[in-house]
Amino acid sequence: MGFDIPPMPRGDPRGMHELAGICKTTATQLGTLGDDLTALPKSMTFEGRAARVFTHHLQSFSSRLADAAAELQDDAGRLDTAVAEVERLLAERAAAIQRAAESAQPAQVGQ
């Protein structure tokens, strides 16, 4: 009787996990930076045409940082999903190997 051991799944769960952590940390930081940029003009007495242009620029930067943060959160989510899937496959494989080992042991005793 043969044993069906699943193949080794592709993917480095530890590395992906580490990268997901970087993504989450940086996304949070970029979000905070963006909020700070939006808030900055309000903290100054600076009015007039140049001030309006300046505020618009900062809002544009802030918006781009928010987009980057959202992209990183999405990346982190995909990494977490991949990690979970790889870990599940690894667990299944380990279980299969375990089962194979267990079913092989009595036969050896009998010899």
Binding site: P9, R10, G11, D12, R14, G15, M16, E18, L19, I22, C23, E71, L72, D75, R78, L79, T81, A82, V83, E85, V86
Partner: peptide, 17 residues
Amino acid sequence: APTPETAPPADGVPEAV
């Protein structure tokens, strides 16, 4: 950032980061 070997749906994520 590190570029670990990935699995779906994270393929391409390290490069994108």
